[in-house]
């Protein structure tokens, strides 16, 4: 009967170990932030409780050992462990409270909006430059000279990329420029990091304000070169585009 309680505990520990130590070593992966690990573990624990309480028998098998332990009915070594819990629990709460209130030099967790809403004047713009091979090539040339040092071969791994936090965008990733309309890129390239609204944290990006160095027409050409080079298509509402 104790298995009904032990199995979820083992499962939770295994999943924690998997998320903490196995996921980061998978190809093209990285360590997960604690907020996401916490979220997944909460799901596992909720699922365990739901499954255990489906019937009266399994509910009792799940909660009875906990109740017996807490009420001291288990006897033996567990009784001593109960006193240990009694002593450790307030300490744990105290430690948590201290951890959340003590002053620290670590910056707070951030929830930066990577793709904030563009200003109204940039919505609905369409690329006025004809999509010819020449224009695309010209755009790629501009990209190579202006963008590639940071954004690399459209993969966000330019030679200067390691100097920036957050790193330059990876255009080959299907969750970046493929999700956006061309007008959005036009705004981001033209106005750069300083043009971002507050939720986009303009102080967190080194993207230059290219309107100072490139004409609008050149920016549109860079956009075409970018999509072509990354093998992506911009978001449109017209299938023929």
């Amino acid at each position: 009967m104790g298995g009904v309680l032990i199995r979820p505990i083992i499962l939770t520990v295994c999943i924690y170990l998997f998320l903490k130590f196995i996921v980061p070593i998978l190809p093209h992966s990285a360590p997960l932030p604690s907020s996401l690990i916490f979220l997944y573990l909460m799901l596992v624990m909720s699922g365990s409780v739901l499954f255990a309480t489906l019937s009266g028998e399994s509910k009792d098998a799940f909660f009875q050992p906990i109740l017996r332990f807490l009420t001291g009915e288990s006897g033996g070594a567990l009784s001593s462990a109960r006193y240990l819990v009694l002593a450790l629990f307030p300490l744990l709460v105290g430690w948590q409270t201290y951890g959340s209130t003590a002053s620290s030099d670590a910056p707070p967790g951030e929830n930066r909006t990577i793709h904030p809403a563009p200003p109204g004047e940039y919505t609905g713009l369409s690329n006025p430059v004809p999509k010819t091979p020449e224009n695309i090539m010209y755009g790629k040339g501009l990209y190579a000279s202006r963008c590639a040092p940071c954004h690399g071969n459209f993969d966000g791994k330019g030679f200067a990329a390691s100097g920036f936090t957050p790193p330059p965008a990876n255009f080959k990733d299907p969750t970046t420029i493929a999700m956006l309309q061309e007008s959005y890129l036009f705004w981001r390239i033209k106005k750069g990091g300083v043009g971002l609204p507050v939720e986009g944290m303009p102080w967190k990006t080194a993207m230059p304000r290219w309107e100072l160095e490139m004409s609008d027409e050149d920016i549109w050409k860079v956009i075409m070169g970018e999509y072509d080079g990354a093998g992506q298509k911009p978001r449109t509402w017209d299938e023929s585009e």
């Binding site: 998978l26 604690s34 907020s35 670590a106 967790g109 951030e110 936090t165 957050p166 790193p167 969750t175």
Partner: peptide, 23 residues
């Protein structure tokens, strides 16, 4: 898509977008 992460965690991930689970 953008995860809540400390500065240290974000640096390890290469931004607030996880390279694997970001999809």
């Amino acid at each position: 898509h953008s995860l809540v992460a400390s500065l240290e965690e974000a640096q390890k991930m290469g931004g607030t977008h996880h390279p694997l689970l970001g999809v």
